[in-house]
C-alpha cells in the first residue's frame, strides 16, 4: 500500500550508521531490526487513540445491538433492567418480520435504492460527458453542479418541500399555468396519482417518485465527480485512433469510453446503493415516511423514538443490515469477475 521509492534511497540509508538517536528508514520496512521494532511501537502508539474511539464507539455498539435485538427491552425499563441481561428471546425478530407494512416497506426501500442509484449515476454520467471539453466558465459549472451534494440536507429538503407545495409551491404554480395540469399535484403527500397516457390508465406512486427525484438530484454530483476524474484519465490517443478509423461520437462512447468507465460505474453503483438503502434523512425530512415512502430505516427510527422499543429497533436495524449484506454479496459475486477483466 505504501508508495515508497525503494531505489536510490538505499545508499543514503546505508551511511546512516551514525550516532544519531534513532534514524529510521521506511524503505527497509521489511527487514527485521531494532529500527523496525521501534517503528512498530510508534505506529501502534500513534494509531491507538483512533483505534480506541472506533472500537468503543462503533465496533462494540454494533455487537451490543445484536444482544439488544434478542432482548425484550424498551426505553421505559432501560433504567431497571441491566445493560447485559440474559433474557434472550426471538420475539423481536418475529414481531418485526410479521409486522404489517414490513414487506411493503422493504419493497419501497428496494425501489427507492435501485431507482435512486440508477438515476443518479445516469445523470452524473451525462453531466460528466457534457462538461468534458473546455469552455469558458467550466470551473464554475463544475462547482455549481456539486452544490446539491454539499448543501445541508435539511435546507435542501425544506426548499424542495416548499417548491413542491400544492398551495404556493412554484412548481405547481407554473405547472398548472404552462404545462396545463388540471390541478396542483401534491407531490409529497399523495401516495398515487392516476395517469392516462395514450388511452392507457395507470397510477404512478407520486410521493415515491418525488423522493427518488430528490435522491437523484442530491447524489448525482457524487457520480459526476468520480466519472469526471475517470474521464480525465482516459488516454486521448484511444479516442483519436477511433476517430481516425471513422468512429462517430456515439460509437466512440459505446466502444471506447464506456468500457473505460464501467469499473468506476460498478464501484459507484455499490457505494450509492449501500448509502441509499440505509438513508434516513432525505425521506424523513421530505415526507416523514408517509404516502407510501416508508423505507426500513424510517421504521427503525419510529420503533426507537415513537414507541421507545429498543429491542424492536435493534432487530429491525439488523434485518436491514442483513438484507443489505446479502444483496451486496450477490452483486459482488455476480459482477466482481467481470470487473477484473476490464
Amino acid at each position: 500500500m505504501s508508495h515508497i521509492p525503494v531505489g536510490g534511497t538505499g545508499t543514503a540509508s546505508a551511511d546512516a550508521a551514525t550516532p544519531e538517536p534513532e534514524p529510521r528508514d521506511e524503505s527497509r520496512g521489511k527487514s527485521r531490526g531494532p529500527l523496525t521494532r521501534s517503528d512498530a511501537r510508534a505506529g501502534l502508539t500513534l494509531i491507538s487513540p483512533t483505534l480506541v474511539i472506533v472500537i468503543f464507539m462503533v465496533v462494540l455498539p454494533i455487537l451490543w445491538t445484536v444482544m439488544l435485538a434478542f432482548r425484550p427491552l424498551s426505553l421505559l425499563n432501560l433504567a431497571t433492567s441491566g445493560l447485559f441481561g440474559t433474557d434472550f428471546t426471538l420475539d423481536n425478530f418475529r414481531t418485526v418480520l410479521t409486522a404489517s407494512g414490513f414487506g411493503g416497506s422493504l419493497l419501497t426501500t428496494l425501489v427507492y435504492s435501485v431507482l435512486g442509484t440508477g438515476s443518479a449515476i445516469v445523470l452524473g454520467l451525462i453531466a460528466a460527458l457534457a462538461v468534458r471539453r473546455t469552455f469558458p466558465g467550466r470551473t464554475f459549472v463544475r462547482a455549481a453542479m456539486l452544490l446539491p451534494y454539499v448543501a445541508p440536507v435539511v435546507a435542501a429538503t425544506f426548499v424542495w418541500r416548499t417548491m413542491l407545495d400544492p398551495q404556493f409551491g412554484i412548481i405547481n404554480h407554473w405547472g398548472t399555468r404552462l404545462l396545463g395540469w388540471d390541478e396542483p399535484i401534491a407531490f409529497l403527500t399523495q401516495q398515487s396519482n392516476p395517469i392516462s397516457l395514450l388511452g392507457v390508465e395507470f397510477s404512478l406512486p407520486t410521493a415515491l417518485l418525488s423522493v427518488i427525484a430528490f435522491e437523484a438530484w442530491r447524489s448525482f454530483p457524487f457520480a459526476f465527480l468520480f466519472l469526471t476524474a475517470r474521464l480525465q484519465a482516459v488516454p486521448a490517443t484511444l479516442e483519436e485512433a477511433a476517430r481516425v478509423d471513422g468512429a462517430t461520437p456515439l460509437q466512440r462512447f459505446r466502444y471506447v469510453l464506456l468500457p473505460q468507465l464501467l469499473p468506476t460505474i460498478a464501484v459507484l453503483s455499490i457505494l450509492r446503493f449501500i448509502w441509499t438503502f440505509n438513508s434516513f434523512d432525505d425521506i424523513y425530512l421530505l415526507t416523514g415516511g408517509g404516502a407510501g415512502t416508508e423505507v426500513v430505516s424510517v421504521r427503525v427510527f419510529n420503533y426507537l423514538t415513537a414507541t421507545g422499543n429498543i429491542g424492536l429497533a435493534s432487530a429491525q436495524a439488523l434485518v436491514l443490515a442483513a438484507i443489505l449484506a446479502v444483496l451486496v454479496g450477490i452483486y459482488l459475486k455476480r459482477f466482481a469477475p467481470q470487473e477484473e477483466k476490464t
Binding site: M1, E26, G29, K30, T36, D39, A40, R41, A42, G43, L44, L46, I47, T50, L51, V54, M57, V58, V59, P61, I62, W64, T65, L68, L75, L78, L271, I274, F277, N278, F280, S297, V300, F301, L304, I310, A313, S314, A317, L318, L320, A321, L324
Partner: peptide
Amino acid sequence: LEFFGRRQVSALFLSVYLFPSILLAVPLFV
C-alpha cells in the same frame, strides 16, 4: 510505519466508512 495489524486496521476503518449510521444510531442512543 510498519506495525503489527496495519492492514487489518485499514480494513476496519474502511468498513466503518461504509457502515450505515441508522444501525449505529440505536445502540448509541441507548
